[in-house]
Amino acid sequence: MINRAAAVLLKHRESYLLMTPYMIFFILFTILPVVLSVVMGFTYYNLIEPPRFVGWYNYIRLFLDDDIFITALKNTMLFAFVTGPISYGLSFLVAWIINDLSRTLRSIATVLFYIPTIIGVSVYPLWRLIFSPDAYGYLNGMLMKWGFLQEPVAWLLDKNHLLFILILVQLWMSMGISFLAFVAGLQTVDSSLYEAGVVDGIRNRFQELWYITLPSMIPQLVFGAVMQIVISFSVADVSIQLAGFPSTEYAGETMVTHIMDYGSIRYEMGYASSMAAFLFAIMVLTNRIVTKLLHKVGI
């Protein structure tokens, strides 16, 4: 067995040599931090004292002694199960619609729909102006002018409105990498398959989509699903920039902002690591479920 493995390595030594730089960085900056985070989750570590093993204490504390974590978990799951599917479906729908445009128009449309992802950080001041709590805010001004409001509403300070606004802004910024993957994937579908489909009885665009386009885009669809899951569960910037850190009554708290709170402010690295490990487990589990569902429906 060892000799066979050595023979394979020797046969493909050029390929492994080319992979070596990437694998070194992948192990150092991805695999190793994940492993360390899992290990640190079982310790108490404050960056000053040496790590002290505490067993499952941090994980028990998450659910029995941290009400804010429960709020953050609920908010994160709401973000994931609202923005994730909507963004995924919207990204594919827009990519499918613009696919039949000419090359120039398709490129322009791709840039226009991808711009919110690129400039998202730079337009947070504009969103704060739109939802400003005084009468000079665009939303308050319009609603008061039209008679829907008698006095300004502090949209970003009101826990009843805050989460909805954050989800709305996140949706606006959500057509990212998965959208580009779908645009590229649609270009790789063999046009002869559509001609053969017409001969086999396909009569409209939706049958064409279901029986030809989607099965031909398995790699891009799975990649888009994985990226959308990662983005949906990693929401933090939109909450910090619009709702503050921390937000009013922690109404905009997410798992990532809670990890940042304990990791970079309170320096309870062991506890922060346990939250990171738990979030990682949720993302992996969700990824497995979504991938199986995609394959189960024939995609």
Score class of each variant (00 low, 15 high):
7 A>Q: 11
11 K>L: 13
15 S>Y: 14
19 M>C: 14
22 Y>C: 03
23 M>P: 01
25 F>I: 08
27 I>T: 10
28 L>E: 00
32 L>E: 02
33 P>R: 00
41 G>T: 04
41 G>R: 01
41 G>Q: 00
43 T>D: 09
46 N>E: 05
51 P>Q: 08
51 P>L: 12
52 R>G: 07
54 V>T: 09
59 Y>N: 11
59 Y>F: 15
62 L>F: 12
63 F>Q: 12
64 L>H: 12
65 D>V: 05
68 I>W: 06
69 F>N: 00
69 F>H: 02
70 I>F: 10
72 A>C: 10
73 L>S: 03
74 K>E: 10
74 K>T: 14
75 N>Q: 07
77 M>T: 05
77 M>P: 00
78 L>K: 05
81 F>Q: 08
81 F>N: 09
88 Y>N: 00
89 G>Q: 02
89 G>T: 04
91 S>E: 01
99 N>C: 03
101 L>V: 06
102 S>V: 03
102 S>T: 08
103 R>F: 12
104 T>F: 11
107 S>L: 14
107 S>V: 06
117 T>W: 11
118 I>Y: 12
118 I>Q: 11
122 S>R: 10
125 P>L: 11
127 W>R: 02
132 S>N: 15
137 G>N: 04
139 L>P: 04
140 N>M: 05
141 G>P: 02
147 G>A: 11
149 L>S: 05
150 Q>R: 11
150 Q>N: 15
150 Q>Y: 04
156 L>Y: 03
158 D>V: 06
163 L>S: 01
164 F>H: 11
166 L>P: 01
169 V>L: 09
169 V>M: 08
170 Q>K: 14
171 L>N: 06
175 M>L: 15
176 G>A: 13
177 I>M: 13
178 S>E: 15
179 F>A: 02
179 F>D: 00
181 A>I: 06
184 A>E: 12
185 G>I: 03
186 L>G: 10
186 L>T: 12
187 Q>T: 13
190 D>G: 06
193 L>F: 10
194 Y>M: 13
194 Y>A: 07
196 A>V: 15
197 G>T: 14
199 V>A: 14
202 I>M: 09
202 I>C: 10
205 R>L: 14
205 R>G: 09
205 R>M: 09
206 F>H: 11
207 Q>T: 07
208 E>S: 13
208 E>A: 12
211 Y>C: 03
214 L>T: 09
216 S>C: 12
217 M>Q: 05
221 L>N: 01
222 V>Y: 02
222 V>K: 06
225 A>G: 08
226 V>E: 01
227 M>W: 08
227 M>Q: 08
232 S>T: 11
233 F>C: 05
235 V>T: 03
246 P>C: 10
249 E>Y: 12
251 A>G: 07
254 T>Y: 02
256 V>T: 05
257 T>S: 09
257 T>A: 04
257 T>G: 05
262 Y>G: 00
265 I>M: 11
267 Y>P: 04
268 E>P: 01
268 E>T: 04
270 G>D: 02
271 Y>K: 06
272 A>Q: 02
272 A>N: 04
273 S>I: 00
274 S>C: 08
278 F>T: 03
279 L>A: 02
281 A>E: 04
281 A>K: 05
283 M>T: 09
284 V>P: 01
284 V>S: 03
287 N>I: 01
288 R>C: 13
